[in-house]
Design a protein around this nucleic acid. Sequence first.
DNA 1: ACATTAAGTGATT
DNA 2: AATCACTTAATGT
Length: 209
Amino acid sequence: MMDLIQQAFFGILEPALIEEIEDVATVRFFNEGDIIIDFGQYIKVMPLLLEGAIKIIRQDEDEGELLLYYVEKGETCTMSIACCVGDKKSEIRAQAEMKTTVALVPNRYLDDWLAKYPSWRNFILASYSSRMDEMLGAIDNLAFMNMEERILNHLQDKVKLLDNRILTLTHQQIASELNTSRVVVSRILKSLENEEKILLLRNEIRVLI
DNA sequence: ACATTAAGTGATT
DNA sequence: AATCACTTAATGT
């Protein structure tokens, strides 16, 4: 079971560090839809993704939601690092997008390893940098794209993530993730279908392009 | 057969 | 693009 850590981080983190992670981390499993971290929670562990993917969601007081980005195998949630260091509440919700395995490292190791392992330092910096890029992507998405583009983009992201052109999800779920209404999603999906970019079935969308 | 949930649509703002 | 109100279709019990 511990070689999941090997498998996910081999080549990213140095062997000595991987061994140390194996010693101190707890491995946890989540099913699709499980909430891993919620708003307002204090984070005392940092998650390393071994298998699957989790989505990071921002939420407004009155139920408004917006998907920010996905965390995949071999990555960590940068927000949780910020929370660990600053002893702050979580600003986001992390929810399993599929069956997911996570290694949880108690935050007291975070500092030690920064000094001790160059590969850890690189890993943390690289993950800040790539998260920043994804955030910019999310902002561009909001600011410069219309709903049709946003929806198609979102569907294609999911296809890539799940490695499957057939998506099992409802219009309502898409609406929540993009913070719009179901009716709007339905109409746009219908028009995408007419353009032969997707195929619609109940609880299922096939992405053709 | 009935209730529930998902999706489609016209009209209005 | 959002909301309302309503219809239709699929699915679960």
